[in-house]
Amino acid sequence: MGNVKELKNRITSVRNTRKITNAMYLISSAKLRKAREELEKTRPYFENTETEIRKIFLSAARVDSEFFHWRPVETSGCLVITADRGLAGAYNHNVLKAAEAEIAKRPGAVRLYVVGEYGRRYFKKHKTPYEGAFFYTAQDPTLRGAREIGMRLLEDYSAGYVDEIRVIYSDMENDVESVVRNVRLLPFTEDMMEDGFEEDELYREYRFEPSATVLLERMLPSYVNGFIYGALVDSFSAEQNARMNAMSNANRNAEELLGDLQIEYNRMRQAAITQEITEVSAGAKAQRRKRKKKTADPADSTLVSL
């Protein structure tokens, strides 16, 4: 009987785990929707900002800004966006692999700005130095958080601590699969300006007030913030999606396990019942035999009992 009780406990615990994984699935999908909606609202501003920066740059005769000219890269700054927690399949692993590849390209000359607790723990464990005072969670990406990150990166770039800024983040390729992207954000050089535009869309004559350089330097932080915000939300979406997949797999496994356990439990219960019936009927038989023994000839008794 102890075995049956054990099995029953096991079924209850699997049921409870399934409740948790199911809740995590639902939470993930709600969070995903909310983050997407927030991002959607910011699109008109940031998309236009990027376009205008390109147009200003291409129509300006001269731009004297460190943000728009390439300089020899001695140290590269990498913003690596990971999740705060695991339980999201290969999501964190893929991002960290891309970060490791970038570090391998410039050993000892990469400054890491890590978003997310998982990534920080990983680099700590592997004794890879990263920016300690840089402390942002991957949960609930906000424009405000993106602004602070952007400000910090621009400041380090201006101070010459880093000569380029890269962002390593995840993006949804389609509804199911996500990919890791490694994008250079700064300097924003000429070869990046023309991507995805028709030539006559970009080359226009403008009068600049006060000057193209001032305008570009004013709008660049907005572009950087917008990009970082987009990357945070895309990564967050990919994370939630990975977690939803992991959780729905867990749900399916729990379902299967529960089925198996239930069958086993039913068998055991049936076996216990059969045994009880056997015992009861054996007991009744013994009683009957006893009664018969009193009346019948002792010589026949063995025959009767068989």
Binding site: E52, I56, R204, E205, Y206, R207, F208, E209, P210, A212, V214, L215, R218
Partner: peptide, 11 residues
């Protein structure tokens, strides 16, 4: 800025 303003970018 009024209608028919020349092409300009202002901070």
């Amino acid at each position: 800025v009024l209608a028919a303003h020349e092409n300009t970018v202002v901070a």
